[in-house]
Design a binder for these strands. Structure first.
Lengths: 243, 243
DNA sequence: GGCCGGATTCACATGCCGTTAACACGCGGC
DNA sequence: GCCGCGTGTTAACGGCATGTGAATCCGGCC
């Protein structure tokens, strides 16, 4: 039936190794997984061979190829990737303005390109659009804390790979807490930020919703939300406290 | 009127009218044929009707849409073009850096984009690459999700190999949902994206169309569209593993 | 140990919100 | 013009999420 939300073990293949710092920074900050290589072989070896033991078999979200100094190597890299049946697509080319002419007659080797130096927002948008074209949709926006993960787009919550079905208010409250794990929020703050600034209700309302959340989380995880007596609630324990 | 019979008079549809001078200059210098318009209707009228006398029937190489001041109009332009059976594709968006955010969640409306102000060489390369892609027919015309499949070109919907006959609005709504399976859309978003930004109507309208869709899908498949209480609707199950 | 403030738990009333049916309007065809 | 159809609106219904009050429990403090 409907496939589970693809747990992103998918990573991007990046040429060259090491990639330009601005690219590495972008990928790391954006939370993308990536693997750099100088030879297409290194990538392809890691793809197939499920029988290879002890090593994680990777699937690929696409490839990012920098065409600059080592232009010939870069294009060879692309050509290699396209040859194999293991799709490491889509391919996005990062090209310096002076090498724009390299693109002509090579349309078959890439799916999109971007000029360096690039705006992070532009690269973000291009990657997203490529993913969309590939039928993968936008990569899910997830809030993860320990065993808990919230998919903001589908309004789904998972606890240790089991779905948690929450009501609207429960979800909103949990999402707010999970957005700042470890931070304590007073009931008043929670009422303002989750229920809305114009909301005037008793402070007990928060208590009850916390209670319902804990109940749905089950006994073993109910302590994920901890009470700070006299103050309010927070998600998770502070590390320095008692331990 | 005296073009050689083999000569296609393909030109680019351009929004808005008049386009920014830098774009007009680029097109003229590059020897591209183009026609600017403010309404998609002007473009579409010029497409069909071969019997229309004294007026040149045009075929289109693609469309160039500037998203800047009149962003809403621009997106409506794109949407109109995508709806019709007359393909005015591929679509390239020219967007100012400050409006890059407009691109997210609109992946279905364009094939590529470029940031203004642009390098002529970059636009040249993008147009060429788009043409190359178009020749290969890369654009997917089938949307498939589980037992449901939509043929975007023929406006036909199938459910478990049985044809579903849907009205126009029903089809548009279902297509929009199916384009991002699992993602929840509020009624407001659906009204904006499916009915159009200029549409102001009651939110109940969405409910009723969802109801009609579910009815036509039959009892066994009506759960394909799931309700997220307090939020909106989405395509796909609320829980993906047995439950 | 007793007192007290605060947190937890339970039960219940309320009203929001999704569902559904029925109707009104506009448009195109016969 | 009439009729059928696609579409949007309105209203009634009903379920369930939500909020509230009260009882109970717990932890800290004198």
């Amino acid at each position: 039936m409907s496939d589970p939300p693809t747990m992103q073990t998918e990573s991007f293949a990046v040429f060259p190794n090491p990639p330009p710092t601005e690219l590495a920074r972008f990928l790391d900050i954006g939370g993308y997984k990536w693997t750099a290589a100088d030879q297409a072989g290194e990538i392809l070896d890691r793809s197939g061979d499920a029988d290879r033991v002890g090593e994680q078999r990777s699937t690929w979200a696409g490839s990012l190829v920098v065409v600059d100094d080592r232009a010939e190597d870069a294009w060879r890299f692309c050509r290699e990737l396209r040859k194999r049946d293991v799709p490491v697509e889509p391919t996005l080319i990062l090209v310096s303005g002076s090498r724009l002419d390299d693109l002509v007659t090579r349309d078959d080797l890439f799916d999109d390109f971007i000029i360096m130096p690039f705006l992070p927002q532009e690269l973000e948008a291009r990657l997203q659009h490529l993913q969309w074209r590939a039928g993968r949709g936008v990569r899910p926006e997830l809030i993860v804390y320990g065993p808990l993960s919230l998919n903001v787009e589908t309004y789904q919550a998972m606890l240790e790979d089991r779905p948690l079905d929450l009501t609207y208010m429960e979800y909103e409250l949990l999402r707010f807490l999970a957005a700042s794990p470890g931070q304590v929020f007073t009931r008043e703050v929670l009422l303002n930020r989750v229920w809305g600034y114009e909301y005037y209700g008793g402070a007990r309302t928060v208590d009850v919703h916390i209670r319902r959340l804990r109940a749905k989380m089950g006994e073993e995880h109910s302590s994920l939300i901890s009470t700070v007596r006299g103050v309010g609630y927070k998600l998770g324990q502070s590390r320095w406290q008692n331990g």
